[in-house]
Design a protein around this nucleic acid. Structure first.
Lengths: 295, 295
DNA sequence: ACCACATATCTAAATTTTAGATAATTATAC
DNA sequence: GTATAATTATCTAAAATTTAGATATGTGGT
C-alpha cells in the first residue's frame, strides 16, 4: 500500500482556481492569501510532475491533462466529503448502508428520481438496491436484511403505506388470435389462450399476478414477459409504464376486453425491522413517497 | 463546495495501524515515530468527532463506526492513488480513458477476466465499455471514437488479430417441431421453420448471422433471442457459451442437423485510429489476447 | 508608454507535524 | 502479588510546512 503524495487540500485549491476564475479570486473564497494559493498549485504540479495550468495571457488555463485530472479530482473530493459526512452522520445514528428492495413492477423512473433527490440528503449513506418479483419482497423482510421494501402487500406485523398504483393492461401482439376476432372479448376467450405470467423471485409461498388462463408460460422477469408477448406467444397483463414504447410502436396492443381490460395493483412501502431502520431510511422513504405522489 | 477537514495522510495512518497491528508497528512501516502515529489518529478522531479506535487491553481495536469508515477510506485512498498514477502515466503518453467496443457474442467471462487482470496495470486509466452487435463494431471504428474493438471482422485499413473462435450451435426448444421429426435434419427442414436472428446494432450496412430460413424473427439482443427460442418460437444459431445453462437445464436442445449443426465464427481484435491508441490500449489488448488464448 | 490586472517569488512569521523522552496502562511470567 | 515486557498517551522542543505580506514580473488595453 502506497501513500498519496498529493493532498485533498491541494486539489481543492486547484478546483477553486478554476471555479472562481483565478488565483486571487480563489484565495478570497478560500480565506487565504494569493501567494498561498500560488504555492499550493505550484507544489501540486511539482509533486505530480505534470503541468496542470498554463498562463494564457494573464489568465490561468487548464492544460488537457489538467482538465482530465481536475475532473477526476472532483470525484475524489466528493468521496472524501461523503466519508466525513458519513462519520458525522453515524454519530447521530444514521445508517452507513440502506438495503432497499423494490418489486420489479415499480416504475424505474420514479426510483431513479427518488435516488437522485436522496443523494444530497444522504450524508454518505449508500443505498444497496435489490429488484425482486412478488413474494421476494416479503421474503427480504422476513429474512431481516431489508431496511425498506416496495412490494405488493404489507405482511402482518409490518408498517406500510400505499406508495403507488400500477396499472396493468391486458396486451398481446397485434397478430395474436385474440386480436383477430374483431369483437369484445370475454374471460372465456382468454381461457383458451396462453397467458404469460411472471414467476416469483421469492420461494416462501408462490403467488401469481394473472389468474385467468389454463395454459401458462412462466417467465422470470417482466422484460422477458414483454419480449415473449411481443413475439405473439400469448397475452399478459403487464404494467403500462413498462410497455409504453411497445404500445406506441405497435408491437403490443391492448386487448378489447368487455370488462377488466386493465386492473390496478397497489404497491406498498414497508419498513424493515425497527431495530434496523434509522433516520436515513426514513428520509429515503419520505422522498420515495413524495416523488411517487407528485407524478 | 466544501473543503475536507481530514487528510489522506490521516486515513493512511489509520489503515496502517490496523493492517500492521498496532501504533508502533505502523510507525515502523511508515518510517515515522510512534508518537506521530498516535498524534495523527487522535487528531483524525477529534476532527471527525468519532471514536474510531478503542483500547481493548493493550490492543487498539476498531469500533463499529471505525470499521465502516476505514472500509470506505480504503476506497478513497485507492482513488487518490489512481489519480496520481494517472497523472504520472499521462506524462508518459498513457490515455486517461479507453473506449472498448465488444461484440455481444464475445464471452462475458473472458471480458471480466481481462478487465480484472488489467486493473493493476491500468495506472488510473479507465475503460469505457460498449456492447454492440455485428456492424456496430465497425461503425464504432469508422466514427473514430473506439480505441479497441472486438468484432466479427477486420475492416479494410485496420490492424486486427484473431482473438477467439465462437461456436454457434443450432438450437430449439425440446418441444419444437424440428425435435419431433425423430431424424436427422437437412437444410430443407430448417427453411420451413422460423429462424430467430439477432438484429444489427449498427446502421451502416446491415449484416446478419443466420442465413438459411425464409421466415425470420429479428430480435435486438442475444438475451432476447435466447428467451424467444426457449419459448419454442423458432430455432436459432446461438453462441454456445451464452446458452450453457439452458442446455444443461433442458430448456434448449441442439438440433440434430446432418451437416453444419454448429459453425464457428471468428472474433477479431481491432485497433482504432493510430492517433488515438496509446500504451494503455495496447496493454489492454495484450491482456485480452492472453486471457482469450489460455482458456 | 503607461496603467490596471494577474501570477510568481522572496522572506519572515505562524502553524502544524515530528521525534524523543517519559508516563500510564495492561497482559504475561514467575 | 509483583516484576517485566508490551503498548499507547502525553509532554516538550525541534523540524518542516504553510501562510501572509511585500514586491517583482509579465500581459493586455488605451
Amino acid at each position: 500500500m502506497q501513500t498519496p503524495r498529493s493532498s485533498l487540500e491541494q486539489w481543492r485549491v486547484l478546483q477553486a482556481v478554476i471555479d472562481y476564475g483565478g488565483f486571487a479570486k480563489a484565495a478570497e473564497q478560500l480565506h487565504r492569501s494569493q501567494s498561498s494559493v500560488s504555492y499550493s498549485v505550484a507544489k501540486l504540479q511539482q509533486q505530480l510532475g505534470v503541468e496542470l495550468l498554463v498562463m494564457k495571457g494573464r489568465k490561468a488555463c487548464l492544460t488537457q491533462k489538467g482538465e482530465t485530472l481536475l475532473r477526476r479530482s472532483r470525484e475524489l473530493l466528493n468521496e472524501a466529503i461523503s466519508l466525513e459526512n458519513l462519520a458525522n452522520s453515524m454519530e447521530q445514528g444514521w445508517e452507513p448502508d440502506i438495503s432497499l428492495v423494490v418489486d420489479a413492477a415499480f416504475p424505474v423512473h420514479l426510483l431513479m428520481e427518488a435516488l437522485k433527490h436522496f443523494t444530497p440528503h444522504s450524508r454518505g449513506t449508500r443505498v444497496q438496491l435489490n429488484e425482486v418479483i412478488l413474494s421476494g419482497a416479503e421474503q427480504a423482510l422476513e429474512e431481516g436484511w431489508a431496511d425498506l421494501v416496495i412490494g405488493v402487500h404489507v405482511p402482518k406485523g409490518y408498517l406500510g403505506d400505499l406508495i403507488v398504483e400500477i396499472e396493468f393492461v391486458a396486451v398481446a401482439s397485434p397478430e395474436h388470435p385474440l386480436h383477430q376476432l374483431g369483437r369484445g372479448l370475454r374471460s372465456d376467450d382468454l381461457r383458451q389462450q396462453v397467458q404469460v405470467v411472471i414467476g416469483d423471485s421469492g420461494n416462501v409461498r408462490p403467488m401469481e399476478w394473472g389468474w385467468l388462463g389454463e395454459q401458462r408460460w412462466t417467465v422470470s422477469s417482466i422484460d422477458k414477459a414483454v419480449t415473449t408477448v411481443c413475439h405473439g406467444l400469448g397475452f399478459s397483463w403487464l404494467p403500462r409504464h413498462q410497455i409504453e414504447t411497445e404500445l406506441v410502436e405497435g408491437r403490443l396492443k391492448p386487448l378489447p376486453l368487455s370488462e377488466g381490460q386493465c386492473f390496478k395493483a397497489d404497491l406498498y412501502q414497508v419498513f424493515g425491522h425497527p431495530e434496523r431502520i434509522g433516520p436515513a431510511t426514513r428520509k429515503l422513504a419520505e422522498i420515495l413517497m413524495e416523488v411517487s405522489h407528485q407524478q
